[in-house]
């Protein structure tokens, strides 16, 4: 009998001690982590949206943790302990089959885009393998007052009627929009977040490039790093404006043959990329969706690369710009 007590009882006692030490005690301590400045509890509808997110297992493909690594910078600043004070259940996730969503409310604030994407991701991102959540939408003859129908591209829209978000989709959208990082705080003292890595060096290819001569009527592609511009455009712009530059009719404006993009004065073009656009008609058409600002996400050289890519693609012939032009526009402010 004594052997049994020693082996079964002894090992269980050892294990209980370790479970306390590695599971319960860190749990108790870290549960008291204070909320970071500006981190607020979820509203009722946002919490409902989080339930939808959990019920459908969104976090099996999307993380909500930004690591202090260079490759994670596209998703926001590194996550800090104070960010998670109101995040129960924790949805940090373990796989990035899809992109991180920590800051999606700031990175893609367009409700129109989010709805189209949820209804069928391939309507805006052809290569996407995310499931369609069309069951969270209703097809009705006429949208009820106060609800704007989702402007789906023809290929994805139902043959008859219009598509409107159900209360589930509305709650999910509210939750996604609530996922916004607060300004970076130095959290080194509160817990183990490592020192933030030094700023990613600006992509230098453009900064070194000379501005094309003022009189050039047809800009030369060789005047800037076209590959870099295309890559940045794909990463930041194409989900709305599409790789074809044609946008989505009724949802996102085309850049192809766009007056601002082809304007000899690039000021407005740069300004829109830096500070976003909302409620302003584009080439005479008014769009529901707001364009997010990129001034906080991208540096001057990157924005110049994007602007130049747009100005020289799809038959556009806009004057090319330099990082200095972007810096000047940035200095003017919104």
């Amino acid at each position: 009998m004594n052997k049994l007590v020693a082996i079964a009882g002894g090992s269980t006692l050892v294990y209980a001690g370790l479970a306390l030490l590695m599971g319960v005690l860190p749990g108790i301590t870290l549960s008291q982590t204070p909320a970071g400045p500006g981190v607020n509890p979820l509203t009722l509808i946002e919490a409902e949206g989080r339930d939808v997110y959990v019920a459908n297992g969104c976090s099996y493909c999307h993380t909500q943790q930004v690591r202090p690594l260079t490759q994670d910078k596209v998703f926001g600043r590194p996550s800090a302990p104070g960010d998670f004070a109101y995040q129960t259940p924790e949805l940090l996730g373990s796989e990035r089959t899809g992109p991180d969503l920590t800051n999606i409310g700031a990175r893609q604030p367009s409700a129109v885009w989010q709805y189209i994407h949820l209804y069928n991701p391939r309507a805006v991102v052809p290569e996407s393998i995310m499931p369609s959540f069309s069951w969270m939408f209703d097809v009705v003859d006429k949208a009820p007052a106060g609800i704007t129908p989702v402007p789906l591209p023809k290929a994805y829209a139902p043959a008859n009627g219009v598509v409107v978000p159900s209360s589930e989709a509305q709650a999910l959208l509210a939750y996604l929009m609530s996922l916004k990082q607060t300004a970076w705080q130095e959290n080194k003292t509160t817990a183990g977040t490592p020192p933030a890595p030094s700023e990613r060096p600006a992509t230098t290819s453009l900064a070194a490039t000379q501005a094309p001569s003022a009189g050039a009527s047809a800009p030369t592609i060789s005047g800037y790093d076209a590959a870099k511009g295309k890559q940045l455009f794909s990463a930041n712009c194409s989900v709305c404006h599409q790789e074809t530059g044609e946008g989505l009719a009724g949802a996102f404006p085309p850049l192809k043959n766009n007056a601002v993009v082809n304007d000899a004065n690039p000021g407005a073009h740069i300004h829109n990329v830096l500070f976003g656009l909302e409620g302003v008609p584009v080439d005479g058409v008014k769009y529901e969706s707001a364009m997010p600002p990129f001034s906080t996400v991208l540096n001057d050289a990157d924005i110049a690369a994007i602007v130049n890519y747009e100005r020289s693609s799809w038959g556009n012939h806009g004057k090319l710009v330099t990082a200095q032009d972007v810096a000047a526009e940035r200095a003017k402010g919104k």
């Binding site: 749990g27 549960s31 998670f84």
Partner: peptide, 12 residues
């Protein structure tokens, strides 16, 4: 009781 926010991450 010890699974709030970051505490739950530790337990996970």
């Amino acid at each position: 009781w010890y699974q709030y926010g970051l505490g739950q991450v530790a337990v996970s």
